[in-house]
Amino acid sequence: MSTATALAGTRTFRPPKLDRRYLPVLGTMLVFGLMLVIGGLRYDNFLSPAVISNLFINNAHLIVLAAGMTFVILTGGIDLSVGSVLALSSVITATLLNAGWNVALVLPLAIAAGSLLGLGMGVMIQYFEVQPFVATLAGMFLARGLCFVFAPESVPIRDEGFIALTNWTMASGRWRLTAAVVIAALVLLASWWVLHRSRFGRTVYAVGGGEQSATLMGLRVERTKVMVYVISGTCAGLAGVLFAMFSRSGYALTGVGMELDAIAAVVIGGTLLTGGTGFVLGSVLGVMVLGLIQTIITFEGTLSSWWTKIVIGVLLLVFVILQRILTLRRT
């Protein structure tokens, strides 16, 4: 039965070769490592447990956003709404809690608001053929407007159950974990499993590789394309809750431009905006790189905060050009 032919070549020993797909992520890892080393050499206490713990604590919500965004971008789409949805979810959380609703009811509701918006955008994109950019732009405006309908001012949260949740930490020496970090880690784990161990996850990659091919392979493309926006919306809703935990308030103007941070993190993490290639763990690395830039600039002291944006821009430029060179060599 098994006749090896000239066409396929004979079975030869292949030295373990690095898969091209991992190169961008490795690049991000390298940058991350370099930044840690430089920071550690340059500043005292840079590599301290407190700083590293804070890196995660301050960015837990962004990790969740980036995880959701990775799903969308892997299919070749984009979700501009996540910053606004995050704000909406945090505002809903704060408003309802202060109205005396039970935490166990409020949090799922806030998250579900995100899922619902995601579903709406997904349906617009898939069934009404509105471009993802436009549909999620509409979602962004809608969520931001709704924020102000709920609460135009910042709403501090006083609910005791919620406060207890935000106060929960796990500490070992000077290492610290908040509930938000644990949740973000769980989201990551779940995203990784879904993307690499489920048919749905592989369909996400397949859609990014070629939508028509995926359809003809009999994969459920339509459902998948709607689902990624639901996932991204849900992640944004969850991130809103995490952000409310972090700031102990809900404010309609939070998360302005955060969608760009999430997109930047995903791109720096090695996911191609054309879809089909990338890893959710890369996106987390991207978030960490962004967080480290902020940390370094804080440590530097003399540099003003706007340098953060410029450095992120430059880093994006470098990564985009590197990715471009990689894809050029592939073809």
Binding site: R202, Y205, S213
Partner: peptide, 18 residues
């Protein structure tokens, strides 16, 4: 060829009946 070039050969064969 209506398969997905970015997936592995195994996935291209087995997805749907994995």
């Amino acid at each position: 060829v209506n398969l997905c070039g970015n997936l592995t050969v195994a996935e291209n064969i087995m997805l749907g009946n994995e």
